[in-house]
Amino acid sequence: METQFTPLTSLTGGALIGFSAVILMISHGRIAGISGIISSILPPSIDRSEISQSLIFIVGLFLAAPLWFLIQGEIPVQVVSDNYILLGIAGLFVGFGSVLGNGCTSGHGVCGISRVSGRSIVATGTFMTTAFVTVLVLRHVVGG
């Protein structure tokens, strides 16, 4: 299924993400790495000093879609696959990989690159490449 090229909303949305990362940095001195924030509240090693701030940030994420509905009068457009086995595997990989590699699209892709971190630049190049190859195989080799 095709999606429209949305340069303006994507650029603006990206700027909001960046703005949020700057707020976290100036108020708490923390990197807006979502995988780090989510995993910090999970066992086996819960970070008790940060658990309340992590939970509050996650509540903020939860409130975004309802707020969007209140302002826009419509639910955000979203097409999620109904191949649940595939999504289950995808979830396991995303969770395991982001924690093992110390970051995801936000921590490495946005914050790390902004800090010109060599590790983050290499990580972003790596996950972009494997994601690209995965979609290539999924849609053009397996999907035919």
């Binding site: 989510i38 939860f62 999504l87 595997i89 969770g95 395991f96 590699g101 972003t124 490449t129 494997t130």
Partner: peptide, 24 residues
């Protein structure tokens, strides 16, 4: 770092979701 990014990318491609958007 490299193994994690590799696995993360495969999952991101399979589902189209990374952690922030999934939770949102």
């Amino acid at each position: 770092l490299l193994a994690g990014a590799t696995i993360f990318g495969v999952g991101w491609g399979l589902g189209g979701f990374c952690p922030g958007p999934a939770v949102t």
